[in-house]
Amino acid sequence: MLFSLSTPTVRRHFTLLLKSLDSPQIHVHDIRHMTATISLESGVPIADVSIGHKDIANLYR
């Protein structure tokens, strides 16, 4: 195997990227919700922005 693409590896590289860009500390999961929020604000239907939830009611919890 050339490299391992495990969750800890992704988190470590993401953290290093943020530090190199002098950006605030955020989690990878935060990007998912930020993308959903921006999509909704841009008029994308909520059913299309369900971010993996089978029931869109889960988005309001």
Rank of each mutant, 00 (worst) to 15 (best):
R12T: 15
S23W: 12
A57T: 14
I31P: 06
A47S: 03
T15S: 12
A36N: 02
G52R: 03
N58T: 07
K19C: 02
A36E: 02
L16F: 05
H27M: 09
A47R: 14
I26Y: 10
T9E: 13
S6T: 14
P45Y: 07
A57K: 08
T35W: 08
K54C: 06
P8V: 11
T15V: 02
Y60E: 06
A47N: 08
V49N: 07
K19N: 06
P45A: 05
T35Q: 12
L18I: 05
D22W: 01
T9V: 14
E41Q: 07
D48T: 14
R61T: 07
I26L: 07
S50A: 08
Y60S: 15
D30L: 00
R61Y: 07
S23G: 06
T15H: 12
H13K: 12
A36F: 04
S23E: 05
V49T: 08
R61I: 05
S4Y: 10
P24H: 05
P45Q: 03
Y60N: 08
D22V: 06
A57C: 09
K54D: 08
F3W: 12
V44W: 14
S6K: 11
V28T: 14
T37P: 11
L16W: 08
T7K: 15
H27W: 08
H33M: 03
L40T: 04
P8N: 11
Y60V: 03
S23H: 14
S20G: 14
V28H: 04
V28S: 15
S23D: 13
N58G: 10
F3I: 06
I31K: 01
L16V: 15
T37S: 10
T7V: 10
M34G: 13
T37K: 12
K19V: 02
I51A: 03
L40I: 11
T15N: 14
I51F: 00
T9P: 03
N58S: 14
V44R: 10
D30H: 00
M1T: 10
D48S: 15
D48F: 12
S39I: 01
I31V: 13
K19F: 05
T37Q: 07
L40F: 12
H29W: 09
L17T: 04
L5P: 10
H13T: 13
S23M: 15
D22M: 05
P8Q: 01
H53S: 07
Y60D: 04
P24Q: 13
S20P: 00
V49E: 01
T37R: 02
P24C: 11
L16S: 04
S4F: 13
L2Q: 06
R12V: 09
Y60R: 01
A47Y: 09
M34C: 11
K19P: 04
F14E: 05
L17F: 11
M1I: 05
R12F: 02
A47K: 03
S4M: 06
L59R: 02
I56S: 04
I51K: 02
R12I: 04
D48K: 10
S6L: 13
M1L: 08
R11Y: 12
H53Y: 10
S39H: 09
I51P: 00
V10E: 04
F3K: 07
S50M: 11
G43C: 02
K54L: 01
I51V: 01
L59F: 02
G43N: 11
I38C: 04
V44N: 03
S39V: 03
